[in-house]
Amino acid sequence: MAEQTITLRIRRQDSPESASYWEEFELPFKANHNVTSMLMEIRRNPITRQGKRTSPVVFEANCLEEVCGACSMVINGRVRQACSALAATVSQDHSVTLEPMSKFPVIRDLWVDRSFMFESLKKAHAWIPIDGTYDLGPGPRVSPETQELAYLFSRCMTCGCCLEACPQVNEHSKFMGAAVIGQVYLMGEHPTGKMHQDERLEALMGIGGIADCGNAQNCVEVCPKGIPLTTAIARVGGQASRKWLRDLFFK
């Protein structure tokens, strides 16, 4: 029997300004391969399917176990992490298509710049403003029910899938996307964080904030961690409305 192979079609781009182009690579098929391990295989022998020597494909990856969020890319048209995209299940007719996420500036090949997301966390004051790191004894009590729901949101790895899938995130809008709304919800569930939730809502009620959500609900579909982002959007939306009314009457 002839050796099974798998073909990787990769959209490449040499720099942020240059045009993209396609290259194809053919590798022996191994069931325990995933997309990052195949990209690593290409680095060891960067020759295209057509026999042309080329540069190794540039990509961002770190933990390789889907907790760091680095290796998000568009695989067969769907955004996800490359490390957990197993060759055995991801290939369609023995081929896989890889593209960089389209909602972020390309640095090179599959590597994109997601600093917009970290800036959004800064704008939204997504932190618990503690008095200091010196020893102030135990933290506040939290019920197991609160912890279990909040924990889901604490697993957001700022991977960008929810922004990639969102029709409202595009070059004409400043919408910050679902991830930061999830984080604002998380901070508001912590007893200390709750005391300062208005500050965060303020940021989400401005430009690019929660009002830009078009309720397409793609975010919750593509989230690799199954975070109930639409729940956060609904609840933070409610918090924002109540704050708006409060401000209207009491300010």
Binding site: I128, D135, L136, P138, P144, Q147, Y151, G193
Partner: peptide, 22 residues
């Protein structure tokens, strides 16, 4: 112990006992 308490104060969602303790 004080390091764990610090992270608790910073908002880490540690698992809890029924009484709400770590």
């Amino acid at each position: 112990p004080s390091i764990i308490y610090l992270f608790d104060r910073m908002g880490v969602m540690f698992n809890r006992t029924p009484e709400g303790l770590l």
